[in-house]
Design a protein around this nucleic acid. Structure first.
Lengths: 225, 225
DNA sequence: CTTGACACAGAACAGGCGTTCGGTTATCAT
DNA sequence: ATGATAACCGAACGCCTGTTCTGTGTCAAG
């Protein structure tokens, strides 16, 4: 029998195994077993699959949980945990109070009303589970560079640091708005995200309820389909 | 022994199991076994865990691959394939041509320079692999409701339908811009996304190069950290 | 009080699966 | 030639794991 000796790098068989693991995972949502890899890659012995898997592990292409059934996984695009769900709590619009989640909401939200975000997209360490999402309704947030239909991801908080973009409810003005927050001597400065627009000032005697800190804005451009 | 009878919905134990599966998966990158669930949820019998798992499956909270080791997974947050990478081709800024990917770029982009998007966030059926991303530099796109630092996801195309938001290069004006595209009698109308701003008109004699259709805009609000 | 459901425990069964070990063949440097 | 090494094969071992079956205590309805 002829066997080709590879000088270095990944051989054809290594690649085939890698591809199979990826496609199997996509189809069955879990990794293949050693025997399944063998069958689909024309390897008749489990020990040979194990042999290749060891090499792929050493070369950093896969990770293995030995002793554990189907404990193979491709390095990188991690199967889970690289994205998380954010519950969609409702809409945010001018003149309406901002819906904020209660503790109950966090545990009972349905997957349908949620937004999936890749971990790699999340700024800093906001990767907690306490985030929530709101859909912007109306064009009242355009001075915050946020348009009708946009999705804003918020982190619930009552106090903001200077420079945070916050969702605030100004009950005196019956107004909901998204602005950059700055605390000044005797008043608050709410700075629109759009640099061409001027800030508004809120006297400390007026009520200003910070409902959350904006972490991300997502706009799906799919109108007129 | 006292046992609390739950009238409906998910009991405390159901929730505990759900939470454990999630945290276990995060830590070990693979689902827990029935026995492991039992240990960490104070259930001494595997049959009882199985009993709860059956209920959670019926209620749609989990999916199971019976007969397969550790074949439990939370519904929704799918392990893989529900997100894909979009290569980050560079920056888009006024006065500079828009970088568009070549075929070579698509196969050789590195994971570091890419953006991960959840499938569920993608509009319509743009779920092809031919998308690419650009980082907005400067504040020249504010009339498109796109700010400095934003990430725009584009689908390369030369022709746009009315109403599409497109990235265009106007070589006569040495200008790069993002606008809603409308073809009119003898000219093109480029409508800013910001409804308070007026459209600009491009005569058909002028050069107008459509580089791509905007599919999504992502803004990470993390300044001033 | 009886009945039936529900919520559990415990044990046993059977198959899945990773590991390991003894062999075999082919390539290559010495 | 020859030993070393890489690339395999097959079978056996044994743990891991999901399934299933029997049994028990509780609670509400009849």
């Amino acid at each position: 029998m002829m066997m080709v000796r590879k000088s270095k790098g990944l051989g054809e068989r290594h690649q085939k195994i890698l591809d199979f693991i990826a496609s199997y995972q996509r189809e069955y949502k879990h990794p293949p077993s050693i025997r399944e890899i063998g069958e689909h890659c024309d390897i008749s012995s489990t020990s040979v699959v194990n042999y290749y898997l060891d090499q792929l592990e050493k070369s950093g292409n896969i990770e293995r949980d030995r002793k554990i059934s189907r404990g193979v996984r491709l390095t990188g695009g991690s199967p889970l945990g690289d994205m998380f769900r954010v519950p969609m709590m409702g809409v945010i619009q001018a003149g309406e109070p901002i819906p904020v989640p209660s503790n109950a909401d966090f545990s009972t939200f349905s997957p349908e009303d949620s937004v999936e975000i890749a971990m790699s997209l999340m700024p800093a360490k906001e990767k907690g589970k306490e985030l929530f999402a709101l859909q912007v309704q109306g064009e009242s947030m355009i001075d915050a560079m946020v348009n009708d239909g946009d999705i804003v991801i918020l982190k619930p908080t009552q106090d903001a640091r200077n420079g945070d973009m916050v969702a605030v409810w100004l009950s005196d003005r019956n107004e909901t708005t998204l602005k950059f927050f700055f605390k000044e001597k005797d008043k608050f400065r709410l700075q629109p995200a759009n640099p061409t627009m001027k800030p508004i000032y809120i006297d400390k005697s007026e009520s200003l309820e910070i409902k959350g800190k904006v972490v991300m804005v997502i706009r799906k451009v799919e109108r007129y389909i």
